[in-house]
Computed example of a mutant assay.
Amino acid sequence: MNLLERAAELAQARKPYVKATVVRAGKPASAHAGDTALVLADGAIEGFVGGTCAESSVRVHALATLDTGDPLLLRISAGAPSTVVEEGAVTVANPCLSGGSLEIFLEPRKPAPRLVVVGDTPIGVSLATLGAPLGFEVIPAGVPDPGAAGASAGAAGLVAAADAVVVASHGRGEEPVLEAALRAGVPYVGLVASRKRGSAVLASLEVSDTERARVHSPAGLDLGGRSAPEIALSILAEIVALRSSSDDATRRTTGGEDPVPITTAVLDSFVTIPAGTIPLATIEAPGTAIDPICGMTVAIVPGAIQADGPVYFCAEGCKRRYLADRG
């Protein structure tokens, strides 16, 4: 496998690495301009950019670029140990280098932040459309069916490897995803809802108050947007702002484990309702009921969340509270 194929394999597996390229070599350095290596997150070096002495410096500074995310020009020369740091460049003197000098460009390659968008509403579609140009790997997801076997496990599997989760399903299957995202430690969890409805949804979650407080609801910065694309832009702006200002100590780590793959089995536990598949004229206005827990108006439709009576609920959380109160 050549380095291009290996780099593609690492990218496919969402494993970070640094591409190290020799851009100048002074004799008698063993490397030549154009020599390339890949430095993996565990420090392994695949390829050639110089002997073991040069590799040591490459490894140290390559791993530093993985931490910062910024490319770096590394200059290595023989001499007493020293390090000179400039903006965008570091010059090191290596006493074991057998003469010559090297200049190596280090390019960190990190997986694109993974954004899971739950719901194919206009805001959800706009998030998927705008997210990709901003460098996100966008995973559009359907809505978890609370009545389906394994729905909670499906939600957990879907969001486990996410960097951000935005629930834009407008009341459908919100709780399982929000709870799974919070328990998985997803850095950004957003709910598209009004303040009143969002507060009711958050109150129904079976999580700690600390976790509940991590949900951004209403999701997005207050930019005054009204249209779906404008609201999506405000949500993406909030995610970018938080990612940029986050402290390394608070970032979620995987402990070296591979991310949970987004498999067909996981997605099969979600029910997608494609926009525009039902002519508007054929939709009959449903009857309504009042959720006895939160007071919200609930449409009486097939698949509505209900208990004996029947009593209808806006969400599984309200149903659980109702049944618990009844003993």
Rank of each mutant, 00 (worst) to 15 (best):
M1Y: 01
M1Q: 04
N2C: 03
N2M: 09
L4H: 09
E5L: 07
A8F: 06
Q12M: 03
R14E: 10
P16R: 03
V22Q: 02
R24Y: 03
G26N: 04
G26Y: 00
S30V: 05
H32R: 09
D35H: 09
A37I: 01
L38D: 03
L38C: 06
L40D: 02
A44G: 08
V49E: 06
C53E: 08
S56W: 01
V58K: 01
V58E: 01
A62M: 04
A62V: 02
T65F: 00
T68S: 15
T68I: 10
D70I: 11
D70N: 13
P71Q: 06
I76F: 04
S77E: 10
G79M: 10
P81V: 07
T83D: 04
V84P: 00
E87P: 00
E87D: 15
V90N: 08
T91D: 08
A93Y: 00
N94M: 14
C96F: 13
C96M: 12
G99D: 05
G100Y: 02
L106F: 03
P108L: 06
K110N: 06
R114C: 11
L115R: 05
L115D: 07
V117L: 07
V118Y: 07
V118F: 08
I123S: 06
V125P: 00
S126I: 09
L127T: 03
L127C: 08
A128G: 12
T129F: 08
G131L: 07
E137Q: 13
I139H: 12
P140S: 14
G142N: 05
G147V: 01
A153P: 06
G154L: 06
A155M: 11
A161D: 14
D163K: 15
V166K: 06
V167C: 15
V167K: 12
S169H: 13
S169I: 07
H170S: 14
R172L: 15
V177A: 11
L182K: 09
L182P: 06
R183G: 10
G185D: 06
P187R: 07
V189T: 12
V192I: 12
S194F: 05
L205H: 04
R212F: 08
A213D: 07
H216L: 09
H216Y: 05
D222I: 10
L223T: 07
I231C: 04
I235D: 11
L236D: 07
L242E: 14
T253D: 11
P259H: 14
L267V: 12
F270T: 09
A275P: 00
A289C: 12
D291A: 13
D291I: 13
C294D: 05
G295A: 12
I300V: 15
G309T: 06
G309K: 09
Y312P: 08
G317V: 12
L323Q: 15
D325S: 15
